[in-house]
Write a protein that binds this DNA or RNA. Structure first.
Lengths: 226, 226
DNA sequence: CCATGTGAAGGTATTCACAGCC
DNA sequence: GGCTGTGAATACCTTCACATGG
């Protein structure tokens, strides 16, 4: 069930909206206007209405959007309406941090398996998850795990991705700083942390440190950026 | 010295090219064609040439681009030509992983200070960096540190950003899952890890697990994705 | 009166194709 | 022959303004 045709950029923003809606719901609100949501998440109000317009009528003129209903719909579109079991490969510093990170739950994503190549790590239990040997990646298919996070060194990433694909995984979040090849049916998102930091200096003023703001707390020119 | 006008999307891709160029340089190559670079980093060759065209002639028809020269130019544009000292705030699981991560060096970014609110952590040395109390963030200005990474819980993020701004920081990479406000002159990039994972299921085939590929290794339909 | 939903307009980014150069 | 650099054409995304509805 693919919704008529939702632009990629809109899909990218849907999780942002979803997070905003969940925050609002947590405050006991029932409805929210595109303007309030805009203030909350930092996206232009017109953009939000346009985005929502791609999948039917959820708002009531004069009132706003029903938070619960809208959140449920977005989850359905993103296919986050059921809990998705996820595997982690590579339990180094970053991998461990990801195991400890509670944020995935928010979106119904649950890390239920972890793999590493290091015999000293295999068998240990980290944040409740036992670490298995890489050779057991093949068991993912029968365990109904179709999503994976790759947190291994660059040199190992491609081989791991191939193992995962062979095991039936069809969605991969790759933290290794390189492009990995995969069949078209498998969606890979690469998240290169250092690269994000690398484009920060471009946008910074030339002088280096910024001047001290007169007015103490920084009132006045506060703006949302990015 | 701002180059005529480089599109934002091009700026986003520059670090990708830079990484590809550094890999090629490491292999002893001297020149690379837009097509080879395209294969390496997964961006269309025409796109690459168009991107490079925004900042002058670096290629030689029939030969390709001089890797060293081009890499140096991209670094200059991104202002990565000098080592930049960076501060980390929040030495939890993720923060520790970032301290250990060698990838920042690649882009001339060096984490030289770390802060945490937890008295049990303050004073300890993690991966060579002593953890200081939050109250010492104000010293960043005189230490010439203008870049910061925020890895604190959502509830603390806004307050930390304000402290950093007051201390003269003008570029922030925020890992907290929320929008933060900052003066316009301060560039903030928010990287919400869970959110990236959240849009993965949307692109996955409906059935859940993918079918076993006939043909073993997966030859044939291999495509770059992402 | 307030807020949604949406055509139409404007802006930005990508793709194409080829002239020009080594 | 191979590869760059770039205008022109296309596709995509965002903004605007307003008609419509509670």
């Amino acid at each position: 069930m693919r919704y008529h045709k939702i632009p990629d950029e809109t899909v990218r923003r849907l999780p942002i909206y979803l997070r905003g809606l969940m925050v609002s719901a947590g405050q006991g609100l029932e409805h929210i206007s595109s303007q309030s949501l805009a203030d909350l998440v930092g996206v232009n109000a017109g953009q939000i209405r346009k985005d929502f317009s791609y999948f039917g009528d959820f708002g009531t003129p004069g009132v706003g959007y029903n938070i619960e209903k809208l959140a449920r719909e977005i989850k359905k579109i993103l296919r986050l309406d059921a809990v998705r079991q996820t595997a982690l490969v590579g339990v180094g510093d970053l991998g461990s941090a990801l195991l400890a990170y509670p944020g995935f739950r928010t979106f119904g994503l649950d890390i239920v398996a972890a793999f590493d190549i290091d015999p000293k790590k295999v068998g240990r239990i980290v944040y409740g998850i036992p670490i298995e040997d890489l050779s057991r990646i093949g068991t993912l298919r029968q365990r109904d795990i179709s999503l994976a996070i790759v947190a291994v060194p660059r040199a190992a990433a491609q081989a791991i991705v191939e193992k995962l694909v062979a095991a039936g995984v069809c969605g991969i979040l790759n933290f290794a700083p390189c492009k990995v090849r995969a069949p078209r049916r498998v969606k890979v998102i690469t998240l290169d942390i250092a690269m994000e930091l690398a484009r920060l200096p471009y946008y910074m003023p030339a002088g280096g440190l910024s001047q001290k703001v007169s007015g103490g707390q920084g009132r006045g020119t506060i703006h949302s950026v990015a």
